[in-house]
Amino acid sequence: MSASDGNLRDQIIELLPRLRRFARTLARNPHDADDLVQIAIERALAHAAQLRADGSVAAWLYGIVRNAWIDEHRSRRRRESLGDAVPAAENVGDPAAGSPEELLCVQDALERLADEQRLAVSLVLIEGLSYKEAAAVMNVPIGTLTSRLARARETLQSLLSDAAGEPL
């Protein structure tokens, strides 16, 4: 996959639904998520020359979204650190698979993970990347990725079974 001009644009466009979903695992507010995607499109095209000829365009773009999130997330957390401790929301309503309430419930649980654990969950469990691909996006050895993933899963199991795991 080379990063020749028209080709890269087409590949970005094709990947946009997945990049938007990935961004939504990181930013709950859809506008914030699309802002991350927008930054990623701009950076990807501006730095197209950095895409290695043998590299996966998808993994490279996920990495750019991740970096944009880390930048925005850290500065936002600094702004918010003086104020409100976000209450642990237990959602009312009846979460059903694929429902917006269920999405909010899962997003709540993801938000309570450490950033790097949350990225591991997003990339592997939601985006379906292999361990090798996800480790490359996160720029860590595979062993680091899998231990983050294992800890994150343990936390999610307890958060989600308490919150809304009851069958309807």
Partner: peptide, 22 residues
Amino acid sequence: RLRAAFDPLLDEPVPAYLLQLA
């Protein structure tokens, strides 16, 4: 469960301004 929560987002139309930007 995680997949089921996030998968519907794939069906959302991509906003025109993002397509235009790309």
